[in-house]
């Protein structure tokens, strides 16, 4: 059979299609419909997945390192939150809370575990040996990208969990969590930015597109990851702070009204 119509990376449309079918199937099976907001997030997630892995891969073929970094950031910081926002709780509950899965779900959505798992995946994927293999081996590349997205979903779970059974952590804890996430991200970005030679051999092995020198490209990619993730995480936890502030003031339980205070006018 000829899969040419699927483009260079057939796994991408196939993956998107599977996700969409699952989503639709779940709706049919349960006979419920997601809210339009959830559906919107989900569609947005699919679109992002599609473009992240087709349009940006085009640049990756030109050995543009910073586009590759952008792709990783989208895979870990944008797609997982969109997926979590787009998935209704009733869709996940039957299988996430099912008897065989539940203990694993409990374990992996623990914020400490989620944090460590994601950090481990993200940091180890950027070791030169792993990274170069990823660039050369298409299947390994796909595998790692799926790893990014899966560990990303787990990482974002404590922030955006749709399931009250596996709840989000409290707002201040969310802030702390995202704040600490800067450590593994910086641990990856800083050495890339500050290195005084090209770390990943693959980028030296072929022609470099766009007329950028591999070294500059690397610094750019490192900076994108360093400042990009920093700004992004900061924006997110700023938003969380304001959510928290609203909860802590307006949404606080109103105390029972005591008798009206006795006021008097000072003469």
């Amino acid at each position: 059979m000829d899969f040419d119509f699927l483009g260079e990376h057939p796994s991408v449309p196939i993956g998107c299609a599977i996700l969409a079918i699952l989503y639709w199937g779940a709706c049919r099976l349960t006979g419920r419909r997601p809210t339009s907001r959830q559906a919107g997030w989900f569609v947005l997630a699919l679109i992002t997945i599609f473009f992240t892995h087709t349009a940006i891969d085009e640049f990756a073929d030109d050995r543009i390192f910073f586009m590759h970094m952008l792709q990783h950031l989208l895979q870990t910081f944008v797609i997982p939150p969109l997926l979590l926002l787009g998935t209704p709780d009733w869709m996940l509950r039957p299988w996430v809370m099912s008897r065989p899965v539940r203990p694993f779900a409990r374990f992996f959505t623990n914020p400490v575990v989620a944090f460590l798992l994601f950090s481990a995946v993200f940091v180890s994927a950027h070791f030169p040996a792993v990274f170069d293999r990823m660039c050369r081996d298409e299947n390994f590349h796909i595998f790692l990208h799926v790893c990014f997205m899966v560990s990303g979903v787990i990482m974002w779970w404590p922030i955006l969990s749709p399931l009250p059974e596996l709840p989000r952590v409290s707002y201040p804890a969310q802030i702390m969590y995202l704040f600490l996430l800067m450590i593994p991200m910086t641990a990856v970005a800083a050495p890339i930015t500050l290195a005084n030679q090209v770390i990943y051999g693959w980028y030296l092995e072929g022609p470099h597109g766009w007329g950028i020198k591999p070294m500059d490209d690397q610094v750019l990619g490192g900076l994108l990851m360093w400042i990009g993730q920093g700004t992004y995480l900061m924006a997110v936890f700023t938003a969380i702070f304001f959510k928290w502030s609203r909860k802590e003031d307006q949404d606080m339980p109103v105390l029972p009204e005591t008798p009206r205070p006795r006021l008097r006018v000072v003469s």
Binding site: V112, V169, P172, A173, M176, L180, I183
Partner: peptide, 25 residues
């Protein structure tokens, strides 16, 4: 987590400990 019970205690205590650790590191 276990001997100092951070796993079991309030998040506030973990925060009080983790933030200085971050700054120290």
């Amino acid at each position: 987590m276990f001997f100092m019970h951070l796993k079991y205690d309030s998040w506030t205590l973990s925060g009080i400990f983790i933030f200085p650790l971050f700054i120290a590191a």
